[in-house]
Every structure is written in structure tokens, then in C-alpha cells.
Amino acid sequence: MHPALSVIFFTVVSGAGFGLIFMLGLGIPMPEGPIAAFLISVLAGGLAFVGLISSFFHLGHPERAWRAFSQWRSSWLSREGVLAFITLSFFAFYGLFWVFMGERVALLGFITSFFALCTILATGMIYAQLKTVPNWHTWMTPLCYLAFGLASGLILAAAFTSLSSALLAQGALGLVILAWAAKLLWWQRAGSIGFSGTNSDTGTATGLGKIGKVRLLEKPHSGENYLTKEMMHQIGRKHAAKLRVISLILGAAIPMFFCLAVAYMGLPTLLLVIGFLSMILGLFAERWLFFAEAKHAVSLYY
């Protein structure tokens, strides 16, 4: 699949934003005062919002995007939009109470956290629902999205927390390890599945396999088309092995190092911001591969 930068940015950054919103809603202790409350709220809401705005650049007609709120009964993309709107609305009230009254309303926080969780899951389901892309069509896809969103959110929450103990950094370390464990399993499944999950090949796709061995002799047109560009993206796969190493170094090793340093060597929690930024860069590489390596059923006809 074509790895569109707007969608890669959207899924990674929004995931982190909603992950941080989830952590804040749980009531993780943060520095006192309206200014800190304001800055942290804007950061969390901002990450989620900037990601969502980025996804608009993927659309042919962004001016009609409001219509996407209408089909939540059937469409995961619509559900994702609705859930994101609900989460950000609740979070806006939560932030207002926090900034102006100095109070973090627990019930409002829990509701916000719940919807933040649902939003990240819905993002994953947009891809997991597609039978046409065997790599994505598994419950492990939303799980990975959720784990990465929560892990990057918790690193950021741990960077700003007012807790004196290293508890959060330890928690972040655990979540980063869990998220990557899930992703390694996802990669293992993706590497072995191809189209075999559905036992499909060009012979079954055309129904001509019963007669003999089938191969494409001529493409419909001599040039490229929307389908070959969108569903049969080749260039992104070229450096897959290198990109995996890069994503593991930036997305796993470096954040884990900073979590360890903060948790067990007593370094200042603010260093976790570096770990967070590195994790986001690593996740960009991971998300690039998520799209670029995914094979679409229509490629059986080409």
C-alpha cells in the first residue's frame, strides 16, 4: 500500500496525543498551577488535533470532511472521527476545569480516558477491518495501535509528572516493551501470511487456476494507474530490513534507555522528552512499513 505521509503522521501523532489524554484522564499527578495545567492540556489536545488535521491532507475534498461524522453505524473511519470529537470535547471540559478551577474532576477524567482508548482502537480498526490486506486483517493491528499510543503517551506523562518516585518511568518502560513485543508478533505473522491467509493466488482470483498455471501476460494498460500506485507500492519495500532496524533503535532502544536512566539512575524525568521524540521518529519508520509492506488482494490481478 502507498505510504502517505499525512496518514503516517496522523496515526503516530494522534495516537500519542490520545495516549497522553488517556494518562491525564486517569489522574496521573502533574505539576501544580494553572500554567502547567494549560501547557500540558494544550500539548495533549494539540498532538491529537494536529494529527487529525494532518489526515485531512490525505483527502481529495477536505471541505466535505464534516460529512464523515454521519456513518458511524457501519464505518470505522466515521466512528474514529466521532470518537475523536467526543474525546476532545470531554478533554476540553476536563482541561478548562483543571486550568481555571485547579481541579481535575475524576469522573470527567475517566470518561475522557475511556473515549481516548476507543478512539485509538477505532484508528486500528480502520485497517484491521480490510480483508483485502491480509497483513492488517487481524485483532493484533488495533492492539499494536493501542499499545504504541499508550506507551508514547505514558513516556510523555512520565516526563512531566510531579511524582517524586520513578514509578511512571518504570511503567513507561514496561509499556514500551509490551508494545514492541506485540509488534514483533505482528511482524512475524505478517511475514508468514502473504495471501495464504485466504489461500489466494492469481489462479483462484481469476478462477482460471482449475485449467492450468496462470500468469499475467499483459497489463490492462501499458502505464501505471491509480490501483498500481495506491495498492502495489514497491519502492517502500526496498529498504524494509534497514527501516525495521531504524524503527527498533529509535522507537524501542533509545526510549527504553531513557526510561531506564530515569527509573533506576535517578536522572531528571524531563529527559524522557528525548525518549518520546525518538519514539515518535521510530514509530514513523514503523508506520511507513505498516503501509509499504502491506500487500493488497488486487495485486493478484497484476
Binding site: 500500500m1 490525505h58 483527502l59 481529495g60 475534498h61 477536505p62 466535505r64 470532511a65 460529512r67 464523515a68 473511519l77 480502520i126 477491518q129 480490510l130 480483508k131 483485502t132 490486506v133 491509480y226 490501483l227 495506491e230 495498492m231 493488497h296 488482494a297 488486487v298 490481478y301
Partner: peptide, 14 residues
């Protein structure tokens, strides 16, 4: 149509 392309992704036949 907002041109998101998700329907094209969901179609196995192109």
C-alpha cells in the same frame, strides 16, 4: 465523496 480512498482499499477487485 471526500476522496479518502478507503472504499478502493476495501475492494478486492480493484
Amino acid at each position: 465523496c471526500i476522496g479518502c480512498g478507503l472504499c478502493a482499499w476495501s475492494c478486492p477487485y480493484g
